[in-house]
């Protein structure tokens, strides 16, 4: 029996809205540690790894680990029916082929429940090694989203180059070329405007912009985003889910022939 009650139910909707265009169906794995989701897009170029810790839930009961295969588009439709301040409770039987979502308004004057059919999805989990990244940059999530949007109007490939002077995003296309450089800014009076760069050694990687732009759909989740890079490894783009967990995106680089 699974029963999990999330007071900030809106976080679930923000996570699903952030990933549903990249991955259509996914297995949500539940264990005593919480909820996890790992899935790749169809081209296996990008991967999402989400974890929501059990202690994020006001009530969490998972008698035995289970994997719930879902269409993320259908899950998004169900979560759209929740009020932004609703408490969301998930319930599923161990051998069940459905999962029930219950939405309660804060004043408990409105309760609704939606039952979603589960699917059999063969999961292709990859082992993501813990990496000591050469460069990590934590910047305002809105800033990252804006860079992706602006550069996408110029080109479809971006070189991200982290040096001691800052992190430079470069693209070029028929229109011309564009450079955006983001510098360390730890003196901003508002914490959410700060940009922190931790550089162990310079690194430059090339990526397809459309994936980085898709990752920016997670912007409503957090004030900051962290990009972590190491030579010839996928970039990790990470959004914290408040203090409950994280939503990580990985994107394979383009390798110069």
């Amino acid at each position: 029996m699974l029963e999990a009650r999330l007071v900030q139910g809106s976080m679930l909707r923000k996570v699903v809205d952030a990933v549903k265009d990249l991955v259509s169906d996914a297995n949500i794995d539940v264990s005593s540690s919480g909820f996890s989701l790992q899935a790749m897009d169809t081209s296996h170029v990008s991967l999402i790894a989400m974890h929501l810790r059990a202690d994020a839930f006001e009530h969490f009961r998972c008698d035995r680990p289970m994997s719930m295969g879902m269409s993320l588009a259908n899950l998004a439709k169900v979560l759209k029916c929740a009020g932004s301040d609703d408490i969301v409770t998930l319930k599923a039987n161990d051998d069940g082929d459905t999962v029930t979502f219950m939405f309660e308004s804060p004043k408990e004057d409105r309760v609704s429940d939606f039952e979603l059919k589960l699917m059999d999805i063969d999961s292709e989990h990859l082992g993501i090694p813990d990496t000591d990244y050469c460069a990590t940059v934590t910047m305002p999530a809105g800033e990252y989203a804006r860079i992706c949007k602006d550069l996408s109007s110029i080109g479809d490939t971006v070189v991200i180059s982290a040096t001691k002077d800052g992190v430079k995003f470069t693209t070029s296309g028929d229109v011309g070329t564009a450079n955006v450089t983001v510098r360390q800014n730890t003196t901003a009076d508002k914490k959410e405007d700060q940009t922190i760069i931790d550089l162990k050694e310079p690194v430059a990687l090339t990526f397809a912009l459309r994936y980085l732009t898709s990752f920016a759909k997670a912007t409503p989740l957090a004030t900051h985003v962290t990009l972590s890079m190491t030579r010839e490894l996928p970039v990790m783009v990470e959004y914290a889910i408040q203090d409950m967990g994280h939503l990580r995106f990985y994107l394979a680089p383009k390798i110069e022939d």
């Binding site: 296996h44 170029v45 989990h125 082992g127 993501i128 490894l233 394979a252 383009k254 022939d257």
Partner: peptide, 14 residues
């Protein structure tokens, strides 16, 4: 010309 890598080349199967 740059070739798009796939994740399997970087992350092993579990």
């Amino acid at each position: 010309k740059a070739t798009q890598g796939r994740l399997e080349s970087f992350f092993g199967p579990v």
